[in-house]
Write a protein that binds this DNA or RNA. Structure first.
Lengths: 156, 156
DNA sequence: GCTGAAAAACAGTAGGG
DNA sequence: CCCTACTGTTTTTCAGC
């Protein structure tokens, strides 16, 4: 992992369908060298995949919300996780330190479907004692771009 | 937007570098028909872009956290948003309804860099009165995949 | 790591229903 | 809106350096 790898990762996070020729020009390597580096980054699991990003609002998914979920005992963590994984409305699910046991990020069609998700799906899961919902009004920034630089990782 | 478009969106969200030939076989169209549909989806802004996804932990970014930020008056919203946009550690920034004014999702190298971000960068921004940080222990699910189906959008 | 070249796979265009 | 056929790129995989 040198500066060139970081540069490639940066470029590919911005433009996941950039061609190897474009990338090679940007980083100053030959095209086969770029192909080789990308292959290795994928192999080592640094690059986990590629995804098209979609405008949820254009698909009628207007509501984004964060839901804090309290669970009464750790023994219910696993079954909760399993159920939540199966819900398409849940974009992210994190176990967290603090008052809540989990934080979910969800995207639903409207407030009605959010309500349904809360009362009919989440609150009835075994072990869930409380949910606390925060509705997003506007998203200023919504990316997955992980910033990396050689400088930052000195001695890592 | 018909069922075929939804199917293509679903596939491209899972595998952003799927070839048109692969997609065409999956949805039962010819390759040029798929190319045309994808072009239109991009044109209309339904597909906003493509990105490589990266394993942050493999890059030494071990800490994910959600930060609720309270701002004393709406007049500071814009300047706050502008400053936050420039911070590479901030993956997401949402203005929200409720106690907090904003929720940020951040990714940092360790707890020390998180602390620095909090006290030296965020809390000193004009208008910020309070921050409330929730550290992620494990992420069960972390995706951007927006679920879509014809059925769900009946009458939309 | 590079260049250069070949083969295979892919994306984009054209003509026609 | 879709098809097939064709053309130009891109990717992949080799040499030899």
């Amino acid at each position: 992992m040198d500066e060139l790898d970081y540069h490639l990762l940066d470029l590919l996070q911005r433009e996941g369908r950039a061609t190897q020729l474009e990338l090679s020009r940007a980083v100053g390597l030959s095209q086969p060298a770029v192909a080789e580096r990308i292959r290795k980054l994928e192999e080592r699991g640094v690059i986990t995949g590629y995804a098209a990003h979609v405008d949820a609002a254009k698909l009628g998914k207007d509501i984004t919300a964060f839901i804090g979920v309290s669970i009464e005992h750790p023994k219910y963590f696993e079954s909760f996780a399993k159920k939540v994984l199966a819900l398409p409305e849940v974009l992210e699910a994190h176990r967290v330190a603090g008052q809540d046991s989990y934080i979910l990020k969800v995207r639903t069609r409207n407030t009605k479907t959010l309500d349904t998700l809360l009362v009919e799906t989440l609150r009835v899961i075994t072990g869930v004692t409380r949910t606390h919902t925060t509705i997003v009004l506007t998203s200023i920034k919504e990316g997955t771009h992980v910033h990396v630089s050689e400088e930052e990782l000195k001695g890592a």
